[in-house]
Structures are given as C-alpha cells and as structure tokens.
Computed example of a mutant assay.
Amino acid sequence: MKNLQHDWHNPIVSSYQNTIRQKIIGYDLIYDMMTEILHSSPTIDSMLIVGAGGGQELFSLGRAFPFSHFTAVDTSEIMLQLARKRMEKVVPPPHIEWYEEDLRSLVLHHQFAVASCHLVLHFIEELEQKKALLQKMADSLKDRGVLFISSINTDMSAEAFPLQLKYWRSSMLQNNLSEEHWLRFEQSFGTSTYPISLEMLTDLLHDVGFSKVIPYFKSHMVDALVAIKEEVNK
C-alpha cells in the first residue's frame, strides 16, 4: 500500500515467510481459522485479497475454495511474485486476477462476498488513510459481506506498552530470532509501524459500515477480526 515505510520492493523480503512465523506466535492460525469460519458460509464466488503479496491468504483460501474467483492486490512487485510462485503449488489452480496497485486508487467493477486484509493496516501512518482503506474495502463488499482483518494494535502511550514489548521480545528470542532482529522491530514502532488500539480499530470498522465486529485470534499485540457489512437496503 502507499504510505508504507517498509521497502517491500527490496529482495530481502523473500525471507518474509520464514521470519513472520518466528515473529507472530500462531501466525498460521490467523489463516486456518479464517478458512474454517468460511466453510460454514454459503457458496463463495468472489474474494478480494488486500496485501496479497507473499501469498498466505491465497494459498489457504485457494486450496479450500478452488472454484472461487480471487482478486489479489498489492503494491510490491516482488511480494506478488512470491505469491504467484507459491500458488503454482495449488492444484487445481484457482482463478486469480493480479493487481500491482494501491486498493485505494484501484477501480473495481464488481463487489465481493469476502475480503481479507492481514497485517497491512499498521504500516499506514495517517489515521485518515487507514480509514480510507477500510472504507474502500467496505464499499467493495456486498451487503452482509465479510472482511477478515488482522493488524498490530496497541496504544503506544499507554503504561502497558513497554511490558507488551518485553513479552513479545521474549517470544521472538525463544523462536530463534536474533536480538538484532528484535531491535529493528522494536525501533519500527512510530517510524514504519503505526498501530492503533483495538478499540479505535473497532470504532473505525463501525464507522465505515460494518455492523458487527468479532475477534477470532490474538497473539501479543496482533488481533484478527471478522467484520460483517451491514445491509443498507433493508
């Protein structure tokens, strides 16, 4: 997405799929639980994947729903290449339209039953831009459409924030990430990582048109939510 400070175009991001699991305890559960929740839904014909680079959502959902149509959006060419390569392993291959673009400026010609946006929102600095992305995803969904979203959520001014960092550091070091890696991550808060509180995120989701917001996963400061778009024509 635009306004991100991370250099997702640097070839070093190819290590992302390895380190993300060491950084976020239970990372795969974000996607496995999303897939399990969707299995209870009626037939899903279309899904919008925002921040699709790397391919984790597409890999999980593509295997579970091979006959769905996917629209994959990401601003990083390298990350999209990683996603394409990963999807070569999915048989039968799902139908995917790829867009190397910012969703906020992308013109979409139809609405979707499901959207996902995992581990993206905290890289957008300005609150209004976060809200603009959430609004675009809400507008891109059909009535009663479902958004799965996860992000780092915390109040960096709160007294608990140093303890949250301390506990997360312990987990990352136990998962064999180096102290240097931890320090880079810690220093990213406020410079390239811009979390908001879970309460603020929930309020924003309600503001842009989601009538129900339900948590389904938490690991340290990472929360995953299901947001259901309200019916506007009732």
Score class of each variant (00 low, 15 high):
Cys117Gln: 03
Asp139Trp: 09
Arg184Ser: 15
Leu201Gly: 07
Phe189Lys: 04
Ile124Pro: 00
Lys136Glu: 06
Arg184Trp: 11
Glu179Asn: 12
Ser116Gln: 05
Asp155Gly: 07
Val146Asn: 09
Arg169Asp: 03
Ala113Tyr: 07
Trp182Arg: 05
Val146Gly: 03
Thr191Glu: 08
Ser171Arg: 13
Ala132Asn: 14
Glu180Met: 02
Ile196Asp: 01
Phe123Pro: 00
Phe185Ala: 05
Phe148Thr: 00
Leu141Val: 09
Ala160Arg: 13
Pro195Thr: 05
Thr191Trp: 06
Leu177Trp: 03
Phe161Asp: 03
Thr193Ala: 13
Val114Cys: 04
Gln111Glu: 13
Ser150Phe: 06
Gln187Ser: 07
Asp143Asn: 15
Thr193Val: 13
Lys166Ile: 10
Asn153Gly: 02
Arg144Gly: 06
Pro162Ala: 08
Phe161Leu: 03
Val107Leu: 09
Tyr194Pro: 04
Ser140Ile: 11
Leu183His: 12
Leu173Thr: 12
Leu165Lys: 02
Met137His: 03
Leu201Phe: 07
Met172Phe: 07
Val107Trp: 06
Leu198Tyr: 09
Gln187Tyr: 06
Met156Cys: 06
Ser197Tyr: 04
Met156Ile: 08
Leu163Thr: 13
His122Gly: 02
Met137Ile: 15
Cys117Val: 01
Leu147Glu: 00
Met172Ala: 09
Tyr167Val: 10
Phe123Gln: 00
Arg144Ala: 14
Arg169Thr: 02
Thr193Glu: 11
Gln164Ile: 11
Leu106Arg: 10
Thr193Tyr: 06
Ala160Gln: 14
Tyr167Gly: 08
His181Tyr: 15
Leu204Pro: 05
Ser188Gln: 00
Leu133Asn: 03
Met137Phe: 06
Glu180Trp: 07
Arg169Pro: 03
Val107Lys: 14
Gln174Asp: 14
Ile149Tyr: 00
Val114Trp: 01
Glu126Met: 14
Leu134Pro: 05
Ser116Gly: 10
Val107Ile: 11
Ser116Tyr: 01
Ser178Cys: 04
Glu126Gln: 15
Gln187Cys: 05
Asn175Glu: 11
Leu177Glu: 03
Ser178Lys: 07
Ser151Met: 08
Ser157Val: 06
Phe189Met: 04
Lys130Pro: 09
Ala132Val: 02
His118Thr: 13
Leu147Pro: 01
Val120Lys: 00
Asn153Thr: 14
Asp143Lys: 15
Arg184Gln: 13
Glu159His: 10
Glu125Ser: 13
Glu199Gly: 09
Arg184His: 15
Ile196Glu: 02
Leu177Ser: 06
Gln164Glu: 12
Phe148Tyr: 15
Lys166Asn: 10
Trp182His: 11
Leu173Gln: 06
His118Cys: 12
Leu198Trp: 07
His118Gln: 14
His122Met: 05
Ile124Gly: 04
Met200Asn: 12
Thr193Leu: 11
Phe148Leu: 11
Lys166His: 14
Phe161Thr: 03
Asp155Cys: 00
Trp182Leu: 01
Phe148Glu: 00
Cys117Pro: 01
Ser192Gln: 11
Asp203Leu: 12
Met200Tyr: 10
Pro162Cys: 07
Glu159Ile: 10
Ser140Gly: 05
